[in-house]
Lab assay of single mutants.
Amino acid sequence: SEIVVAMYDFQATEAHDLRLERGQEYIILEKNDLHWWRARDKYGSEGYIPSNYVTGKK
């Protein structure tokens, strides 16, 4: 599975969105859409994140 790191904070506005915290790692579950990826955080929460807010883990 692909691990990404959040470059920016993202506040979830929709129920299906996942909040991003800058510097935290997330697991990508689905990339069915170019701009919104389904991800899981370290607490096990899942939701959609803006793909341009994250970068591949170095």
Score class of each variant (00 low, 15 high):
Leu29Arg: 02
Ser1Trp: 15
Ala6Asp: 01
Ile49Phe: 06
Lys57Phe: 11
Lys31Ser: 08
Asn52Asp: 12
Leu20Asp: 02
His16Lys: 14
Leu18Met: 06
Tyr26Asn: 01
Ile27Gly: 02
Asp9Trp: 04
Gly23Trp: 05
Ile3Leu: 10
Tyr53Arg: 08
Arg19Asp: 14
Val5Cys: 09
Arg40Asn: 05
Leu20Arg: 01
Tyr43Lys: 07
Asn52Leu: 09
Lys57Glu: 10
Trp36Asp: 02
Pro50Lys: 05
Pro50Leu: 05
Ser51Glu: 04
Asp33Leu: 08
Gln24Glu: 14
Glu2Ala: 09
Thr55Ile: 13
Phe10Asp: 00
Glu30Asn: 10
Glu46Gly: 02
Val54Asp: 02
Tyr8His: 09
Gly56Ala: 15
Asn32His: 12
Arg22Lys: 14
Gln24Ser: 10
Asp33Arg: 07
Pro50Ala: 04
Arg38Ile: 09
Asp33Ser: 11
Glu2Thr: 09
Leu29Cys: 05
Gln24Val: 06
Gly23Pro: 00
Lys31Arg: 11
Asp17Gln: 15
Thr13Phe: 09
Gly56Thr: 15
Lys42Ala: 09
His16Ile: 08
Tyr53Asn: 04
Leu34Val: 13
Glu46Lys: 04
Ala12Asn: 07
Asn32Ala: 12
Ala12Leu: 04
Trp37Ser: 01
Pro50His: 05
Arg40Tyr: 02
Lys42Tyr: 07
His35Glu: 10
Arg22Gly: 06
Val54Pro: 03
Arg38Cys: 12
Ile3His: 07
Ile27Asn: 05
Asp9Ala: 06
Gly47Glu: 01
Gly44Asp: 04
Ile3Gln: 04
Gly23Leu: 05
Leu34Arg: 13
Arg40Phe: 03
Phe10Ile: 05
Ile27Lys: 06
Leu29Asp: 00
Ile3Ala: 05
Glu30Ser: 10
His35Arg: 10
Ser45Asp: 13
His35Tyr: 13
Ile49Asn: 01
Thr55Phe: 09
Ala15Phe: 10
Glu25Ala: 08
Ala39Ser: 03
Glu46His: 04
Leu29His: 00
Thr13Asn: 11
Glu21Ser: 06
Ala12Glu: 07
Glu2Ser: 09
Ser51Gln: 06
Ile27Thr: 12
Ala39Trp: 02
Asp17Glu: 15
Arg38Pro: 02
Tyr53Ala: 09
Arg38Phe: 15
Leu20Trp: 03
Val4Gln: 04
Asp41Gln: 02
Tyr53Ile: 06
Leu18Lys: 00
His16Pro: 06
Arg19Gly: 12
Ser51Cys: 12
Tyr43Asp: 09
Val5Arg: 06
Trp36Asn: 06
Ile28Glu: 01
Ile28Asp: 00
Leu29Pro: 00
Leu18Arg: 01
Thr13Lys: 13
Ala12Gly: 15
Val5Gly: 01
Glu30Tyr: 07
